[in-house]
Nucleic acid binder design. Structure first.
Lengths: 95, 95
DNA sequence: GCATTATTTAGATATTTGTCTAAATATCTA
DNA sequence: TAGATATTTAGACAAATATCTAAATAATGC
């Protein structure tokens, strides 16, 4: 997992909102965009950042490009964060 | 929890390293700084960001200022992230 | 009080980032 | 093939950020 890419991706509120929206299921870029008041170009930029962090997957379906969550990376990340918490799991523990 | 402040704080690798370092126990600003090749002023800036996110606590001890992890916020954050993962806990669930 | 040490604040600067408009690419349908 | 729709790419620009040096604040010990 590209830790830096993932944390950077999550730092922007619009990108977190995109992930949340995808939580409901896969969606085309356009559908996702309906919820936001920014241009398609800006949206596309956010998608690129999320893809680079491997947080989303894409699949072309005809004219559309469908985005879906890659929950594996999210799980990895969460595990890694638990590792930063002394009270859970213990420092340097195996896990 | 100020979500945006927390994610923003975690987006920088130096700050994540600081948190990791504090994982071993409370330390003065100077002690933390030994591990990094940046000026005290820059360090201080990172501390300010971490404090704003409530990720660390400070306590003056004589001449020194001692930093320690605030694990509560880290736990909150992790829970919140788990909520972004479909396979764990379920979307929109109570939790 | 004064010099020393630890940390923060102020101000400057270069880099990164989010957004936009305009143009390019890809697919569908008539 | 031409026109319409969906998405990305290129290039520009303003705002945010990480860093630095210099100065300020706070505590210690002579």
């Amino acid at each position: 997992m590209k830790q830096q890419a993932v944390f950077r991706a999550l730092a922007d509120p619009t990108r977190r909102a995109i992930l949340k929206r995808l939580h409901g299921g896969a969606m085309s870029a356009g559908e996702i965009g309906e919820a936001f008041d920014i241009t398609g170009a800006s949206l596309s930029h956010h998608f690129a950042v999320l893809k680079q962090a491997d947080l989303v997957r894409t699949e072309r379906r005809g004219q559309y490009i469908v985005y879906s969550l890659n929950s594996t990376v999210m799980e990895d990340l969460t595990r890694m964060m638990l590792d930063l918490i002394p009270s859970a799991g213990g420092k340097g523990g195996k896990r």
